[in-house]
């Protein structure tokens, strides 16, 4: 999705490479889907709230149509003998995808800091072992990061 957004930003809004990366960076600091956040920021820059809502509709409507179509398609397939095996295989594949994605993203942002890694492992244990609410865990890791990484605090 990001490459498409980059092309639109360049051709429609005159936003070039570095500025686009900055927008993606800002989009990531907010909750919600990164693709949607990136799109609405580009839209807002072009036309204020109207622009943001226009780009939001543009990025959401195809997803709604496709997902609705898929839902009815799966409804028709329900009861077909191989669909159960297909769902099991799909779920197994998703587990692999989620783990790969986490390690891929983690490798990109840890920058050789063992303190960073310790925070990630701590968050993992808090959620996996102690079932803490993920939102509280994130608040905690954010505060640890603020104290540890922002200079002046304890360096990790």
């Amino acid at each position: 999705m990001i490459p498409f957004l980059e092309e639109i930003a360049r051709t429609q809004a005159d936003i070039d490479g570095d500025e686009f990366l900055q927008i993606v960076g800002i989009a990531q600091t907010f909750p919600g889907a990164m693709g949607i956040n990136t799109a609405v920021i580009i839209g807002f820059r072009m036309g204020g709230f109207k622009g943001a809502i226009a780009s939001l509709l543009g990025v959401t409507v195809p997803s709604v149509i496709c997902a609705t179509g898929l839902f009815y398609f799966l409804l028709i397939l329900q009861g077909v003998f191989w669909i159960e095996a297909a769902m099991t295989a799909l779920k197994a594949a998703i587990v692999g995808i989620i783990l790969a994605m986490a390690i891929h993203l983690g490798r990109r942002s840890w920058h050789g800091s063992f303190g960073w890694m310790a925070i990630a492992v701590l968050a993992m244990l808090c959620f996996y072992q102690f079932q803490l609410n993920p939102v509280f865990i994130l608040l905690g890791t954010g505060i640890i990061g603020l104290l540890a990484f922002s200079g002046g605090g304890w360096k990790l």
Partner: peptide
């Protein structure tokens, strides 16, 4: 730099939770 530190910690937390989610789902499938 404070915002950057906060976001760095947040990213670490996000990665940890996504990993844990993967392991949790793995058990059932």
């Amino acid at each position: 730099s404070k915002l950057q530190g906060f976001l760095k910690g947040l990213t670490a937390g996000v990665i940890g939770i996504i990993l844990a989610t993967g392991f949790k789902l793995m058990h059932s499938v």
